[in-house]
Design a protein around this nucleic acid. Structure first.
Lengths: 242, 242
DNA sequence: AAAACCTGTAACAGAGTGTATCAGCGCACC
DNA sequence: GGTGCGCTGATACACTCTGTTACAGGTTTT
């Protein structure tokens, strides 16, 4: 499969903007998908592999900034924000949150196109400089996590492959060592799912991850349970390469 | 709650940047304090122990560079400079003065986060806070409490796992050795609950903790009952690591 | 000495947690 | 386009944790 065209997700509650923008981008060689709300966008992001999100800040329901924050934190895709007004506040907040660029409405579609290309060029050129978690490796207690290969090397040299879910869970822990993370937080960080009432999936993933990284699963030392609170990753996290 | 995270001081005259940055860093596990001017920053530096300063160069009143020079000369804390424009001059001057790194606005907060971590790693003199509970371990009468792992090692080398409640209770005692703590105080310190009238939960937790750490539960030597007053932790608490 | 109060802890119940098991789903591989 | 396999969420059940209650002491007050 040789370099398919980038897939852009357009999130805007205005039908006009969504569709004309989609048409314009498609005509310029991108694949596009549209969503009219943040929740719909989350659906799409789960189902399809998205290379970039064009996101309206002002939307009914969940705010664009909130979705943006989620995308950045989970490192799912670069984001270009659409702001209704040229408000410096929005711009600053957006960039602080981690959006890659922003465009003020009404915008020239050619300008947006240029910025999309610029962001895609930037992230493909420097895909590893975005966050320490994206860089080479992480280590804790003698373990080494190869972020690219998604596998662990134990202190005794044994290699442990991780499933996608286990990897995401471990990364969520490594990003926030020594913090107590509730099941809802972890669910959001790993899959972006909305927590159901009787959702024990995080418990299960923790159990599976423990089985792989704890020497004694009955007395876990790395992932501690905080009764009534969630879980904590207790080890010191370092970057052996820098 | 143990909080061993580095303490970052953010100095910027723009409220937006100050606060969103503080929020972002806090969410990523740092303690933060903000200051809107160099003079305010000097106040903070006198009062609190700061591990790193994020400092805007362009500010009304005393210049950021001037404060930076002062910090470097007195060796108080590493500095990361925020420069409004990608001006090479500023960069050179800043680094010559002795700043540890610099970031140009508008900046990606994740980049700043990465640089903060890099600088902290480099100086690696992240001093332990003065609060003994923030350190890795505590010891009393031959016992060693591993704060991160939330477990005890008895003088004879036997490991004793603690439940969350027992751990919190023990920490509450260790933080205030030789003080008489009422049940209400302990309840607040451990769970933050409002004391009910016939609340015997602390009695029970004390009983359970005694069963684990006292050699003779009938004649407790570590946790003494103060009749009509509460409980006291009597042992000397030390920090084996320093 | 009797009454009132305080404390220790066993016993219990309800909520929280670990994990075996299973079914559905996606995906690679014929 | 089947087919098999691994992954993941749901479910169930056993087990743990913790607040409540009850009761047997002990201590103080009257």
């Amino acid at each position: 499969m040789a370099d398919p065209s980038p897939h852009i997700l357009i999130v805007d509650d205005h039908r006009d903007i969504r569709e004309s923008l989609a048409r314009y981008l498609t005509k310029n060689g991108f694949r596009t998908t549209v969503a009219e709300s943040a929740s719909q966008a989350r659906q799409v992001l789960k189902a399809a592999s998205i290379n970039l999100v064009v996101l309206d800040i002002m939307m009914p329901g969940e705010d664009g900034l909130s979705l943006c924050r989620h995308l950045v934190e989970t490192n799912q895709a670069p984001v270009i924000l659409l702001t209704a007004m040229a408000e410096d506040t929005d711009r600053v907040v957006g960039l602080e949150i981690g959006a890659d660029d922003y465009v003020t409405k009404p915008f020239n579609p050619r300008e947006l196109l240029a910025r999309i290309r610029a962001v895609l060029r930037r992230v493909s050129n420097v895909p590893k400089s975005r966050d320490p978690i994206d860089t080479e490796q992480l280590a804790f207690e003698g373990w080494v996590l190869d972020v690219n290969r998604r596998e662990l090397t134990a202190p005794d040299g044994v290699m442990v492959p991780l499933s996608t879910g286990e990897y995401q869970l471990l990364v969520a822990f490594l990003k926030r060592p020594k913090m107590v993370l509730s099941r809802d937080q972890l669910l959001d960080l790993t899959s972006g799912r909305t927590p159901a009432i009787f959702d024990r999936s995080i418990d299960n993933q923790v159990s599976r991850l423990r089985r792989k990284i704890e020497t004694d699963a009955k007395n876990p030392t790395l992932i501690k349970t905080v009764w009534g609170g969630g879980y904590t990753f207790t080890a010191e996290v370092t970057e052996p390469d820098g």
